[in-house]
Amino acid sequence: MSSVEEALYGNRNAAYDQAAKKVLSQKKILAFILKRMFEEFKDESVQDIMTKYIEGTPLISQVPVHPDETNQEYERIQGNNTEDGSISEGMVRYDILFQALVPKTKEPIMPIINIEAQDRANPGYSILKRATYYASRMVSSQRGRDFYGDDYDKIKKVYTIWICMNAPKDMGNSINRYRMTEERLHGKYRAEEWQYNLLNVVMLYLGNRKTQDSLIEMLRIIFKEKAPALVKKQQLEEEYGIHLTEDETRELSKMCNLSEGVYNDGVYDRAREDLKNLIQSTGWSLAKAMEMLRIPKEEKAQLEKALKKQH
């Protein structure tokens, strides 16, 4: 993104991302994800997962991914931390990170769950490889915090879930899981699964069409469907029993408005003024000015209409 684009759209995109993360981090929604995705929770009710097993308040964009600062930040989550940043690599943050107690166990084993709300399935590199790196970091960062020395039995199982908002047609409405499995090459011995099944990566690709998978359909309603927040709120209540509070509804409304190009922070007005000034100073056509400012295709018509109203 160019500096001009960053000035025009960076604030809006950041605001949308933050609102989307806040919506996604509601325990009501996380409980649906845990029940659908994790074997440990499949026999539990959504209500019990939400009230008994999800611990603390999910952290949004706070815990480092890279090595240098992960453990420092994790100290603040006794129900958890969201970014990882190496001094040399710069700060990279987990979108949402929280802890959940595993049902039906007396041991305080807690899977660490990271959910990334990606807006593209192909950002120029393999998201699957990035997800594997994140999961690996979430395991290695436990040393010196959750276990010390050679006490490797205390390593906690890690799930990292990536929700890709705008998947290509051939990927849309798909859920793929990747995890370690045992392959016996010779002999009869089998290791117990708890010893090696530590890394779990789940890729969830949202499509535009309706689907019978309840989790994908719920997320599609929240993030993909073109409808006002109050309509989405009613759908979530009637179809999933998710009752949003006033604050949660406000975040959903903010996200919906931003996704429709409503610039609450004045970015839209600045884009319009920049176009007008550029046309006046250069004599370019509106189409040429939009091209030079790299105005997204989906926003050109709205800006053109707004500029015509001024004349």
Score class of each variant (00 low, 15 high):
55 E>T: 09
182 E>L: 05
66 H>L: 13
194 W>K: 15
301 A>H: 09
164 C>K: 10
194 W>T: 06
33 I>W: 05
167 A>N: 11
231 V>N: 09
294 R>Q: 15
217 E>I: 08
134 Y>G: 05
310 Q>F: 07
252 L>K: 08
89 E>H: 07
159 Y>E: 02
17 D>E: 13
142 Q>D: 02
252 L>P: 10
92 V>H: 09
52 K>F: 06
280 Q>N: 10
220 R>K: 15
245 T>V: 13
145 R>Y: 14
60 I>V: 06
253 S>R: 13
192 E>V: 14
232 K>N: 04
55 E>Y: 07
37 M>T: 02
261 G>N: 12
170 D>H: 10
99 Q>I: 04
232 K>W: 00
280 Q>S: 12
70 T>P: 02
83 E>I: 04
225 E>N: 09
40 E>Y: 04
64 P>Y: 10
229 A>P: 11
64 P>L: 13
233 K>C: 11
236 L>C: 10
89 E>S: 01
152 Y>V: 06
13 N>Q: 12
298 E>G: 02
158 V>E: 07
44 E>I: 05
275 L>T: 03
131 A>Y: 08
175 I>H: 02
21 K>E: 06
132 T>E: 14
247 D>W: 06
237 E>W: 06
241 G>P: 15
91 M>C: 04
53 Y>W: 04
230 L>H: 15
274 D>H: 00
29 I>C: 02
209 R>K: 12
75 E>G: 01
307 L>F: 07
234 Q>D: 15
255 M>H: 09
279 I>F: 04
263 Y>G: 09
51 T>Q: 12
153 D>T: 12
52 K>M: 12
10 G>W: 06
308 K>L: 01
139 V>S: 01
79 G>Y: 00
153 D>F: 06
130 R>V: 09
233 K>Q: 15
74 Y>D: 03
264 N>C: 14
179 R>H: 14
159 Y>A: 03
